[in-house]
């Protein structure tokens, strides 16, 4: 009878742990969208994985600012880890005085999924404001001044991931890998007077005291932090997890060399532009003036082709596009994201 489980494919299963939990589907799509070093999604749970952060002036109301974070690659379709993590805190952070330390924050906590498949949540802003309560899949609108929603949406990201991994952007075969995939998202709209002038914003996920993932600008971790296509595994140790757990206020100290290394591949060693660009890219926050409706590098709107912008910057004009543009039907009104597929 002991033989019963000799051919239980212990190998295939353990291997699957290698491929699944360790480097499985989630890591293919993992965050920013590839920031964990192929071991597990940050924190081992794809719900803690931040895909993208957006910050823009509301197209429906120029007095309003909009912050969006998308999480959980493919909305957990591959990992089975659906929705938002009930023990995590999802945070928007803002630096208003230019020192890359958070001066303002908004924190969202979710309850476990209930029998109807929804999660109740509470959003709390620093200061004396009240908790805002909601349920996933529904819009919260407080007198038209503050709006919140959380749930499953079409993933707004567009990128030719296949070509990126091949380090070969061929316009004739380019396609948006993220078409048809969903994501979780939190959309938070508020009077922009709360964050006036030029501010730096970013998002992070916390489990207790531990920061699991964080993101400001698109693709910083993916492109600059080893290991990546420029500094593949084996060339030097990975710092992806360190980056995910890091704080913008320490980015120059901790990661300046990595960004410089990558930029020098294209600009040449000693080129002063490298230093200038590095100082733009680090600390990893989205700098935005909500008083302007302009897009990236002023914040990030949903349809902004950040990949093209960053490709041109990083490669010194050698590559200027991944030949993929937005194919999602965004809305000009809250919550702006396209509905889930």
């Amino acid at each position: 009878m002991r033989q019963l489980f000799r051919t239980l494919p212990i190998l295939a299963v353990i291997a699957a742990l290698a491929v699944g939990l360790v480097a499985g589907p989630a890591s293919l799509l993992a965050a920013d969208h590839l920031d964990a070093p192929g071991l597990t999604p940050p924190g081992g749970d794809s719900r803690l994985d931040i895909n993208d952060v957006y910050a823009f002036q509301s197209p429906a109301n120029p007095d309003h600012a909009v912050l969006i974070m998308t999480t959980n690659p493919a909305a957990g379709a591959l990992t089975g880890q659906l929705g938002f993590h009930p023990d995590a805190t999802y945070e928007f952070l803002a630096d208003t005085d230019g020192d890359a330390k958070p001066d303002n924050w908004a924190r969202i906590n979710f309850d476990p999924t209930d029998s109807s498949g929804q999660q109740a949540y509470r959003l709390k802003v620093k200061g004396n404001g009240p908790n805002i309560s909601g349920v996933t899949g529904q819009l919260v609108d407080l007198d038209g001044q503050v709006k919140v929603t959380a749930g499953t949406f079409d993933d707004p990201f567009f990128f030719d991931l296949v070509s990126f991994l091949a380090a070969d952007f061929d316009c004739s075969t380019a396609s948006n890998f993220f078409t048809g995939l969903n994501t979780q998202a939190i959309v938070f709209e508020f009077p922009r007077s709360e964050l006036s002038g030029t501010v730096g914003v970013w998002a992070r996920t916390m489990l207790g005291d531990q920061q699991i993932d964080r993101m400001g600008r698109p693709a910083i971790n993916t492109v600059f932090i080893p290991n990546n296509i420029f500094e593949p595994a084996g060339s030097e140790p990975s710092q992806r997890n360190a980056f995910n757990a890091g704080k913008p206020q320490h980015d120059q100290r901790d990661f300046r060399n990595e960004v410089v290394d990558t930029l020098e591949i294209f600009y040449g060693a000693g080129n002063p532009t490298v230093g200038t660009l590095t100082d733009i890219l680090l600390p990893d926050v989205l700098t935005v003036d909500f008083g302007s409706s302009a897009g990236f590098l002023n914040g990030r709107r949903l349809a902004d082709d950040v990949i093209d912008a960053e490709l041109g910057l990083v490669t010194n004009g050698a590559v200027t596009t991944d030949c993929v543009s937005n194919d999602s039907a965004f809305s000009g009104t809250f919550p702006y994201l396209a509905p889930k597929n």
Partner: peptide, 17 residues
């Protein structure tokens, strides 16, 4: 191809088998 993936785990598993 990619040491990050932990393929040595599978190597070990096959060797056990």
């Amino acid at each position: 191809l990619d040491p990050r993936l932990g393929a040595l785990g599978l190597v070990g598993d096959v060797l056990v088998a």
